[in-house]
Simulated scan of single mutants.
Amino acid sequence: MTKIFAHRGYSSQYPENTMKAFEEAEKAKADGIEIDIQMTKDGEVVIIHDEKVDRTTNGLGYVQELSYKGLRSLNAGHRFKHIGKEAIPTLIELFDWMQDNTITCNIEMKNNKIPYKGMEEKTIELIRKYGFEKRIIFSSFNHYSLVHSYRIAPEIETAPLLSDGIYQPWIYANAIGAKGFHPNYKRINQEIIQSSIEKNIKVRAYTVNSPKAMRALINEGISAIITDEPILARELLTLP
């Protein structure tokens, strides 16, 4: 059955990549959450999508130029007046919360523009500390980073992000040791989905918010959809 991954948490209704968005995604019965990680100036692995804090917080500047203390003082919920202050979470904070549930976590490493030295190693060390090897999927547009992660932690699933269509993506995924791939949903079709799944390669498409697109992908047997609308996706999934 198709799995539902809440994109940056329940991000259509709550501040993206915050603990509030993750908690609400679990309440919405999402099977998984998709998060983005980067590193602060002092080496803390934090959960935020953009390389700069400008869009999602009330602060300014690059994540890599801010200390953890400085980053933590920002409000990641400032555009959601009814919610109040939400801090940028650390990966440790998320993992502490995950100890009390069974949700799967797709970690997107945001290192295709800024090469955060040692981020893969630090993240893998944390995953092993918490015993989450089977609950984590690494994805990234930086496929070199995915291969590096696979080489040092082959027990953790990897899945390259694909913004454009490529020929026989299941072959490419297998070639780099990945168990799946995460394509732009507009760049795949039923043949790609079925051929991939037949080869034991999972297809998790992003970012699917249209009910029509969701329904079509579910009918085609896609492995998972990554969506800002987990409640809508769950409702469509339970339709006959």
Rank of each mutant, 00 (worst) to 15 (best):
D164I: 13
N17R: 08
T2F: 04
Y68T: 03
I156K: 08
A216S: 07
M19R: 03
P160Q: 11
K179E: 13
R151D: 09
T57H: 09
S196V: 13
I222C: 11
S145L: 14
G118P: 01
F80Y: 15
D36C: 05
H82Q: 10
E155N: 01
I193W: 00
L71T: 01
L126N: 02
R55Q: 09
M1R: 11
I225S: 13
D50G: 13
H148L: 10
Y116H: 07
N189C: 08
G131T: 03
G131M: 09
K179C: 13
H7D: 03
I35D: 02
V208G: 00
I201Q: 03
I47M: 09
D50F: 02
N17L: 10
I114Q: 06
Y206R: 09
G177W: 02
I92A: 06
N189D: 15
I35V: 15
K20N: 02
N219A: 15
L236E: 09
I226G: 00
H143D: 02
A25M: 13
A6Y: 05
W97T: 00
R151H: 10
E133I: 14
N174W: 12
V46E: 06
R72N: 14
E235M: 13
L162D: 02
H49G: 09
I197M: 12
R204D: 10
I124M: 04
N142Y: 08
F138Q: 00
E16S: 06
M109Q: 05
I231C: 07
I88H: 04
Q194F: 00
I83V: 13
M98L: 12
F132V: 01
K179M: 07
G177E: 12
E44Y: 08
D100V: 04
K3T: 06
T207D: 05
T123W: 00
F80N: 10
N142Q: 03
I176A: 13
A25K: 09
K134M: 10
Q190H: 03
I192M: 15
I197Y: 02
I107V: 15
R234N: 09
G118W: 13
L237G: 14
N200V: 06
R215G: 01
R187L: 14
E26C: 02
P15M: 03
V45H: 02
T56P: 05
E108A: 08
A30D: 10
S11D: 01
N17W: 12
E220W: 15
I35C: 05
K85T: 08
A224F: 10
S163Y: 12
Y172K: 04
E157T: 10
I107S: 04
I92T: 11
H182M: 08
